[in-house]
Nucleic acid binder design. Structure first.
Ligand SMILES: NC(=O)c1ccc[n+]([C@@H]2O[C@H](COP(=O)([O-])OP(=O)(O)OC[C@H]3O[C@@H](n4cnc5c(N)ncnc54)[C@H](O)[C@@H]3O)[C@@H](O)[C@H]2O)c1
Ligand SMILES: NC(=O)c1ccc[n+]([C@@H]2O[C@H](COP(=O)([O-])OP(=O)(O)OC[C@H]3O[C@@H](n4cnc5c(N)ncnc54)[C@H](O)[C@@H]3O)[C@@H](O)[C@H]2O)c1
Lengths: 218, 218
DNA sequence: GGGACTTTGTGAACGGAGGAACAAGCCCGT
DNA sequence: ACGGGCTTGTTCCTCCGTTCACAAAGTCCC
């Protein structure tokens, strides 16, 4: 899961940058010129010192006594995250989840363009979802090359996930977002992030159960 | 995001239990009687020592020289996670994502029963999704009481999320899984977990961009 | 029954992340 | 020009989590 050696930015910091980014976009929408680390921290749901330390990894973007320039900080974080250009993506597996993802406008808004949709089921190939035609898995490599895709989203059933990942990597994809509840094995240099909803729910039940026990002990 | 004081189990351990659980279920399906920490670690994608230390928090469930009894360990982890009984859930917001979630069989399989579906749009209320009738948001409290729901899933647009969360909490829900890209503020004692796909993608682009820079420097 | 082998459970070292606190630096009003 | 008041950038300390390494404990086979 942990991507190889990232440089010198702590992984925890990287994971927070998108949260700061979203908060800053809200501030920009309200035409706020500057923001203090305290306010930004509150919006992001973290500690103010953490915000300052995170941002200091990239240089001194703030002004003492004033705060951070919203627009400038937005630009810097976007640059750090590589969001200065769009990222073409391919979604593999156009079932329940794949279709919901394809129809979701929130990706496009943030610079993630659904360039291709892929399924192994010939019955689905040829149909159009969210304005994009569904291609067959066999064409994955040529789609990746043609659209210069570097991000792959896996929304297939679990048993197919590893095979799809292998094909993605063979085609040149280096970043994978995996929704199938399996641990993918990938070579060095490939980033994988996994979203597993059942895991999230199970973590919730752990604390729920604990609370019940502790609560009844009062 | 971090749930209050959980007892004495490290948060990181809790987050790994569901992963072990899934691996153990696979082993049980193959009729494997015992498993070593090393094999389990490999399946879960973690370090073997970590597996042993995690499991040791709950007592000595293994046998030296042999490993862990798969069935017994399954039972213990299920018990720890509070998965000995089903958990009724409510999904609020039956758009793209909400419908995909409602139709997803993987929840039911893991003991999460979609007991109620809710939307604010009167045009959607009354329709049936995955065998469950969609109710109006106004009926949330009575649904929660009637079905004894303790888990709420938020799949509404961002601006509605905080309001929905407040209503859930007022109705007695104590665990929330939030898909809207906002930081929810909730009182002490309420667990919230957030799934933000755009954040995941942005983390991937960070490392992708870095790799490109490092790669070209070779 | 005993010795070799396997694997757990845990003590200790290590590294990274979080938070408090403060000096340095900047703005503004006078 | 200068002092008062903010807010950053950073230092230091602490804590949590990871990993190594090994003794304890059990199995298996002869
Ligand atoms: N739907 C959800 O809300 C949800 C939630 C959590 C996790 N997931 C996970 O996401 C994955 C997809 O879920 P779903 O509900 O969309 O399933 P689904 O069965 O509705 O869709 C799966 C799709 O993948 C296609 N497919 C199968 N093998 C393929 C292959 N080798 N290459 C390309 N496409 C292939 C199928 O034709 C089908 O269209 C599953 O792993 C599931 O566990 C889904
Ligand atoms: N669709 C995806 O793949 C996806 C991916 C990532 C994140 N999200 C997030 O999930 C959320 C839902 O996305 P979507 O694509 O399903 O949106 P959508 O617009 O398709 O659906 C939203 C639904 O919520 C209902 N709703 C609005 N206000 C409500 C309220 N106060 N109470 C109850 N219901 C209400 C609407 O009637 C609608 O049915 C959004 O916050 C989105 O950012 C979605």
């Amino acid at each position: 899961m942990a991507p190889a050696i990232p440089g010198d930015i702590p992984e925890a910091t990287v994971a927070r940058l998108p949260v700061y980014l979203r908060a800053l976009q809200d501030l920009a929408d309200e035409n706020l010129g500057t923001v203090s680390s305290e306010r930004l921290a509150e919006m992001a749901g973290v500690n103010a010192a953490k915000v300052r330390k995170d941002l200091s990894h990239f240089g001194s973007y703030g002004t003492r006594g004033v705060g951070y320039d919203v627009e400038y900080l937005l630009f810097q974080i976007r640059r750090e995250l590589g969001l200065t250009h769009d990222w073409p993506c391919v979604i593999v597996g156009m079932g329940n989840l794949g279709q919901a993802l394809a129809n979701y406008g929130g990706f496009r808004d943030r610079g993630f363009v659904v360039a291709a949709l892929v399924d192994a089921d010939r019955a689905k190939v040829g149909s159009t979802i969210a304005g994009v035609e569904v291609s067959h898995l066999d064409d994955l490599a040529s789609l990746v090359r043609h659209h210069n895709i570097s991000i792959g989203v896996i929304a297939t059933p679990s048993p197919a996930a590893q095979g799809v990942a292998d094909q993605m990597i063979a085609a040149g994809i280096s970043s994978i977002l995996n929704f199938a509840p399996v641990v993918l094995s990938v070579p060095e240099g490939i980033s994988v992030r996994k979203v597993d909803l059942a895991v999230e729910l199970q973590i919730l039940t752990f604390y729920n159960e604990r609370r019940a026990v502790v609560g009844s002990a009062d």
